[in-house]
Amino acid sequence: MKNYQSKNINSIPYFFSGFWYKDPPKDVSLDGYRIDNVIHYTDLVIGIYFGIVVAALAYFIFKYRASLGHKAEYDHGNSRKNVMFTGGLGLLVFFSVDAVIEKMAFKDLKEAFWNFPKTENVIRIEVMPQQFAWNFCYAGPDNEFGTDDDIIPSQNQMHIPVNTPVVVQIASWDVIHSFYLPNFRIKQDATPGMITALWFQATETGVFDIACAELCGNSHYKMKGFLTVESEEDFQSWLSENTPEESQDDWDDWGDEDEEDTGVPEDWGWAWKEIK
């Protein structure tokens, strides 16, 4: 059972914006539907409430307009009945909208977004954005980060196998960035000096955009990465292509002082933090 609600309760945005209404990017993740469902449920209920307000407004404007020559009723609305009525409606709104979405959100967080996979079969990636590019790091053959055999592919290229949970730990190199995968409905800030984490699982292959969602300077808009979701075999062969060759390291830093100023060093990476 994937859905709480039927999938297409998009009527409210559609109603207002007509043919300009746009779908979100295609969801290719295991848990993205949960976010869509929360949004759709909220769409539906607030649509109903706002509809009631607008209907009431329209009715009052028509019925009680001054030109009818009637006199307004002298009513302070302070009676116990009225106070109970407004209070009751307030509580009704709270329990029908807020309590429900809170419950849905907590359930989703517990089951998916904050429930990091415990199994062995997990791809672990470290992400270190810099102004204005994405750096990725894979643990390499020894499955440990911060060692010599870490695989650091070329910038902005992230590859993951399909149908495998991916855990990402993020820390920024310079200013605050935000790791945003629209197709996976996921976003996590990258803050310098601090590691944050998220996980997701792709359900389809393809190439998707990675965007930076937090203002990080004048080329913020160009800070674009590519997430390639591919089959397990393709992924493994891509990894082996990028495995660093032995004894090449000593020559790399030579005479590269200028680049050191802005870019991340060749051998970046931190020991993987255990997720509680």
Partner: peptide, 20 residues
Amino acid sequence: SIPSAMFFLNWLGTMWKGSI
């Protein structure tokens, strides 16, 4: 949202049976 809903309703209540 509870107190907001309450004074929001009061706005509508002000117009109700008024002479707008």
